[in-house]
Write a protein that binds this DNA or RNA. Structure first.
Length: 424
RNA sequence: GGAGACGUGGCCGAGUGGCUUAAGGCGGCGGCUUGCUAAGCCGUUGUACGUUUUGGCGUACCGUAGGUUCGAAUCCUACCGUCUCCGCCA
């Protein structure tokens, strides 16, 4: 959510920013509702002040056995006016809130202006192109040969997009999760958390999934809960409605969670194998930072994700998102993409974003400045570190051998017990 | 799922319709003292919104939302949460 004061005082800047995200914005309606709201408040507060004064006079009169009938009559009238103005104020505020909640975050000034993903610049490329002297298989062919997963039975159990990992495939999935968690904890100083995989309406609203993207979520109506699309949601809300000490910033959490996405409207795209799933596993990093350091923290966040890919020896590139491709809540975002040699394409495995105070305002996440003064909103950031399904794809396809086996990087040995996945 | 108890400031805790501008304490902050010394004394203390001549002024906030009343932390209703006991359960 944007600061209403910012919309009021820098209307043009806000409008330009929103339009660069290809989102329409009706600032006129917002500003007139804002004005109406403030007018009502002034009026109702004057009436409440009068009522308070008169009520004290009633108390005095009653104490001295005087006649308070006229005063009581007047106060009763004021009460009725207050009630009607209160109702009006609630209605105006509801309309205003609804509009404000629909407005996306404004891109940071460093973000290149562009219409869509086709204009995203590549800002970094790393690693050698893997070119063995044999015909490369896709992860689906490798997995089928080695018995790593079973999409047919996953579909039987739950439906398409819900994968069943089997044997070494299940262990490899678990190994990757543990490897990434340990890496971030030990090398990058994150604190591990293991959050609920469901969240309530308020929590989903803080991070920006609601109210705009209700259709993208799995919902449990009986209990008014949603399955989380990413650990970003519960972890960012750890400090919802809290005031933190400035000296405790930045706070860095990493979390494993299963993630659930309906992917409504994306049928036909990437439906094969692991490329797009309704349920997948991801290690997520979340930061709570001082506003002055959030962009430096975005760079190290991205670096923390890159190091996972480098430790696994996988070729990757970094994309900077143009304004038109930025998500609703993000002010700036990098995507990390792995090269999948079997699929012969780049696969997005991480998204590292700075949300500035957009989520913090929705969730009332603040810090108290060291030298005293008012609590102010902090900045939230998050990045995948990283998502497993596409990581698994790139890993299998990169490390496949000519004989149908897969030779995994040494760094996974402590987690897998072996580096070789062989045909039975 | 059933029964009961309880939700008050950063924390503890008093408060049964107007003398609450939420007592008192702890903690924090500022100052004084420097032979009460792992101390003592004094002062101070939250959030949001509106308004403003930037000094203030006003309004609201005692789990949340309604209601009763001239007036609600206090009375009523619903909901949420915590704790205890019972039931069920990995």
């Amino acid at each position: 959510m944007l600061d209403i004061q910012r919309i009021r005082e820098n209307t043009d800047e806000v409008r330009t920013g929103i339009e660069s995200k290809n989102a329409p914005i009706d600032t006129d309606t917002i500003l007139s509702l804002d004005q109406e709201r403030r007018d009502i408040i002034s009026e109702v507060e004057a009436l409440k002040h009068e009522r308070n004064v008169l009520s004290h006079q009633v108390a005095e009169l009653k104490k001295s056995k005087g006649d308070a009938t006229a005063l009581i009559e007047r106060t009763r009238e004021i009460g009725a006016q207050i009630k009607s103005l209160d109702d009006k104020q609630h209605k105006v505020e509801e309309q205003l809130d609804n509009l404000l909640m629909q407005i996306p975050n404004i891109p940071h000034s460093s973000v290149p202006v562009g219409f869509d993903a086709s204009e995203n610049p590549v800002v970094k490329e790393w690693g050698p192109r893997y070119a063995p002297g044999f015909e490369l298989l896709t992860h689906l062919e490798i997995g089928a040969a080695l018995g790593l997963f079973d999409f047919t039975r996953g579909t039987k159990i739950a439906g398409p997009g819900f994968p069943l990992y089997t044997g070494s495939g299940a262990r490899l999935e678990r190994a990757l999760i543990n490897f990434m968690l340990d890496f971030h904890i030990e090398k990058h100083g994150y604190t591990e958390v293991l959050p609920p995989v469901v969240s309530n309406r308020k929590t989903m609203t803080t991070t920006g999934q609601l109210p705009k993207f209700e259709e993208d979520m799995y919902k449990i109506p009986q209990d008014d809960l949603y399955l989380i699309p990413t650990a970003e949601v519960p972890v960012t809300n750890i400090h919802q409605n809290e005031i933190l000490a400035e000296r405790d910033l930045p706070i860095r959490y990493c979390a494993y969670s299963a993630c659930f996405r309906r992917e409504a409207g994306s049928y036909g795209k990437d439906t094969r194998g692991f490329l797009r799933l309704h349920q997948f596993n991801k290690v997520e990093m979340v930061k709570f930072t001082h506003p002055d350091t959030s962009y430096a923290e975005l760079e190290t966040l991205r670096r923390d994700a890159e190091e996972i890919l480098e430790a696994l020896g996988l070729e990757y590139r970094v994309i900077e998102l143009v304004t038109g491709d930025l998500s609703f809540a993000a002010a700036k975002c990098y995507d990390l993409e792995l090269w999948a040699p079997g699929e012969k394409r780049w696969l997005e495995v991480s998204s590292c974003s700075n949300f500035e105070d957009f989520q913090a305002r929705r969730g009332a996440i603040r810090f108290k400045p060291e030298g005293g003064g008012k609590a102010q909103l902090l900045h939230t950031l998050n990045g995948s570190g990283v998502a497993t399904p596409r990581l698994l794809v790139a890993l299998l396809e990169t490390y496949q051998q000519g004989d149908g086996s897969v030779l995994l990087p040494e760094i996974l040995k402590p987690y897998m017990g072996t580096t070789g996945l062989h045909l039975k």
